[in-house]
Amino acid sequence: MIKTKSIIGALLVSILFAAAPAMAQEGHATPEIKKEPWSFAGPFGTYDRNQLQRGFQVFKEVCSSCHSARLMAFRNLSEPGGPEFTEGQVKALAAEYEITDPDAEGGKRPGIAADRWPSPFTNDQEARDANGGALPPDFSVLAKARGTTQPFPWWILNYFTAYSEGGPDYIHALLNGYVDPPPEGAEVPEGKHYNTYFPGHALGMAPPLSDGAITYEEGESGSVPLTVDQYSRDVASFMMWMAEPHLVSRKEAGFQVIAFLVLFAGLMYLVKRKLWSRVEH
């Protein structure tokens, strides 16, 4: 019958349609970026609290000296589903930072939990001047502003696995993608650094991490290696949390909603069948 055929047809059509945006990125010159086994990947994924705390330490000690994170508030760091520092820790942390506040005496005051993360530079121009003309991007949603591509037909699977970790995959690859000296034939301008995964390969940021550069705080020491690979996994996870702080509660709600819909659909199917059993159609 035409119906079966057309249902299969419609399914194929919708898959291809839904998948079309991913195809746009085919033909990039950068090598393919591997999917990493993130704890927060897939419908069942959740953040690893210890990893977020480690990632926060990397962000605080290394990244935040150049990169802003203007949308993250200190209070977020103690919210459920995140790094879950205690409120006391967050309060003490916030107080370490000076916040620009026109209402305060002298225009500055110590931070409180409600404040957003202060930017290292007062404006973009100052940030450029301090970084050889390149603007370090804001971290708030950066993990969602980057992505990866898979060759045909693998990207079709992404719609069924809910793959949303392109950003962390890219960040991890980038932090591990420096090649020094640059490969033969690659021209890297003065002040730039060759990176395999950066589009165009000439990255303004010098390699920010090195093995052993950060000693993780008590409780974490010894449990993970102090390597660039580990640092970059931790900071990429932290950045994903920063970009999507309600990921865990969102997925929890998702299971409830879908379970409800399946139950309701089943009941409605029975209702419909019952009604229509009286009609030849």
């Binding site: 409800f260 309701f264 009941l267 019952k274 059993s277 009286r278 009609v279 030849e280």
Partner: peptide, 27 residues
Amino acid sequence: NLAHQDAPKPGRRDFLYIAAGAVGAVG
């Protein structure tokens, strides 16, 4: 104008409609 084939058993029919209605209300 409906072609009634058999009268549905009231018990099950009502239960089904009430259950669907209740679930719908929850939704």
